[in-house]
Design a protein around this nucleic acid. Structure first.
Length: 151
DNA sequence: GCCAACGTTGGC
DNA sequence: GCCAACGTTGGC
């Protein structure tokens, strides 16, 4: 069992949007970064725990708990020329991009990045490092436990 | 809207 | 394979 943090722009898909989806589940399409793709394709298993994080917004931070509900499969948006995530170099035989499905476990109180930075226990957390841009990062089990306790 | 950090692209 | 130019991310 692994732990992850996955960023979503609330203007795109907020925790409330996720809660309103059928099965409270979303296909995590649109990732176009190889490291993040590899995490999904090579490491994520059904049942892995996920912090649902709001990024690029007024109140960035953790907004919910979620879990991986389907193993990685080819990201359908890469094949659609009209889609913003279309990749002309991807084919059905050799897909380049993959995504898992993520299901909401529960919405939490918002835990802002400012608050996260106040805890020495979290100072090495990937998402708090300067210059971090990865939209999917592994979370240390101790970091997960700590955050779950302060929710 | 700014801008630092980082990833990707492509000419050489 | 180097690296400058360019595009994107995301907190502020």
């Amino acid at each position: 069992m692994r732990y992850w943090l996955m960023k979503s722009e609330p203007g795109d898909c907020s925790v409330d949007d996720l809660a309103a989806m059928p099965g409270q589940t979303v296909a995590w399409y649109g990732v176009r970064n190889y490291q993040a793709r590899n995490f999904m394709r090579d490491q994520m298993k059904v049942g892995d725990k996920v912090f649902f994080y709001h990024s690029n917004c007024a109140e960035p931070g953790i907004a919910g708990l979620a879990e991986v509900s389907r193993l990685a499969y080819p990201d359908q948006t890469q094949f659609d020329p009209k889609n913003r995530y279309f990749d002309p170099k991807a084919t059905a035989d050799t897909p380049r991009w993959f995504n898992v499905d993520v299901r909401l476990v529960k919405k939490t109180r918002p835990v802002g990045i400012k608050e996260l930075r106040t805890y020495p226990q979290l100072e090495r957390m990937r998402v708090l490092q300067v210059g971090n841009r990865l939209s999917i990062t592994p979370v240390d089990p101790r970091e997960w436990e700590f955050i779950v306790r302060i929710l």
